[in-house]
């Protein structure tokens, strides 16, 4: 699912590691992929950026807890005037507040962005896990049992993909958030977070399931051919251990490409009014609030937007590099 900011489209499927070239030097496909990835400077920069964001995501709540950053304290003294705009140039940038403060509340913007990264990545990672989990299980079932199971899963996928997804993401919110609260999840943001993870995960699994199913079927085909050639066997069995290495590569590539779309999706949901609400910061709700100050306080408008952009870009670049590294065809060239 390529949910870049809401409108959906499909990307070509990543290819698999087993198709990777058998090297002259006799290295494993994984080693070749790693070497290729290392040689791809853009992908490596993106990787470093991802690591930095991951560290931020883990450390930010700790920093908040021990008081190094402070995303919640109001600073009425730092805003002024009828619009309660930040005092000072560029949205009130100062040593204490490197990115300035929010209008109205005077909360520290940098702290809020850092904490926003934490929540956004947590949601995206969790939703990806849900998608992968559902997709792998249902894809395996469809590929292994074929027949009725395959048919039903196929129709279910068709059905899910027929829904206008973005609209469903927001339309289901009033219905399901309440249900989650009724089910015992604390009301307000915890229920909303759960809801966002659940719907993103739910609408994302069909894509994974299709890849997995395709892999299982093609492996079956190959096993069948080989077995038939060697033994004259009528049918072959594939065991899971053999299958797994062939599934890793596409899952990994696809996850890296899907994760940033989930991050943008969270922001899009905030923008459309069903996201997580302040004072809990997310990049989405910061951006959504900052829209009102786009011209009056550009720092406030641009900081969360650019952060979101850089996170998404880093994942896309890395995912691209990963796919190229695992794709044997990416090295071929045309002639004249």
């Amino acid at each position: 699912m390529t949910l870049s900011a809401g409108e959906f489209a499909a990307e070509p499927l990543p290819t698999t590691a087993e198709e990777a070239p058998t090297s002259v030097a006799g290295r494993s496909p994984w080693q070749i992929a790693r070497a290729r990835l290392r040689a791809n400077r853009v992908a490596m920069v993106a990787f470093v950026a991802i690591v930095v964001f991951a560290v931020i995501a883990v450390v930010a709540p700790i920093l908040q807890a021990v008081g190094v950053i402070d995303a919640t304290t109001l600073h009425p003294d730092l805003v002024q005037g009828p619009g309660a705009m930040p005092t000072g140039a560029f949205g009130g940038i100062s040593l204490q507040h490197p990115l300035g403060v929010e209008p109205q509340t005077g909360r520290d913007l940098l702290s809020r962005i850092l904490l926003g990264i934490t929540l956004d990545t947590a949601i995206a990672v969790a939703a990806t896990i849900v998608s992968v989990g559902l997709g792998v299980v249902l894809g395996l079932v469809a590929g292994f049992y074929r027949g009725a199971a395959d048919w039903s899963i196929g129709r279910l996928i068709d059905l899910i993909l027929a829904f206008p997804q973005l609209l469903m993401l927001i339309a289901l919110s009033p219905v399901l958030v309440q249900r989650l609260t009724d089910a015992g999840i604390p009301s307000g943001n915890p229920s909303k977070v759960t809801y966002i993870i659940a719907v993103l995960g739910f609408f994302g699994w069909p894509y994974f399931a299709r890849i997995i199913r395709g892999q299982v079927l093609s492996l079956r085909e190959r096993e069948f051919v080989e077995a038939a050639e060697m033994l004259g066997a009528r049918r072959s069995r594939i065991n899971f251990k053999e299958l797994l290495p062939n599934l890793w590569a596409p899952i990994l590539v696809y996850s890296t490409l899907v994760l940033p779309t989930y991050i943008s999706a969270e922001a899009a949901m905030s923008f459309l009014g069903v996201g997580i609400v302040p004072p809990t910061p997310t990049l989405g709700n910061l951006l959504q609030d900052s829209v009102n100050y786009a011209t009056a306080d550009p720092t406030y408008f641009l900081a969360p937007g650019l952060t979101l952009f850089i996170v998404v870009l880093a994942f896309n670049q890395f995912g691209d590099g990963l796919r190229d590294a695992l794709d044997p065809r990416s090295d071929r060239a045309g002639g004249r």
């Binding site: 870049s4 809401g6 409108e7 943008s264 922001a267 952009f309 870009l313 896309n316 691209d320």
Partner: peptide, 12 residues
């Protein structure tokens, strides 16, 4: 194209 692809629609 990758930059444009990474910009959320509503941000653009």
């Amino acid at each position: 194209s990758l930059v444009a692809y990474s910009l959320p629609t509503f941000f653009i």
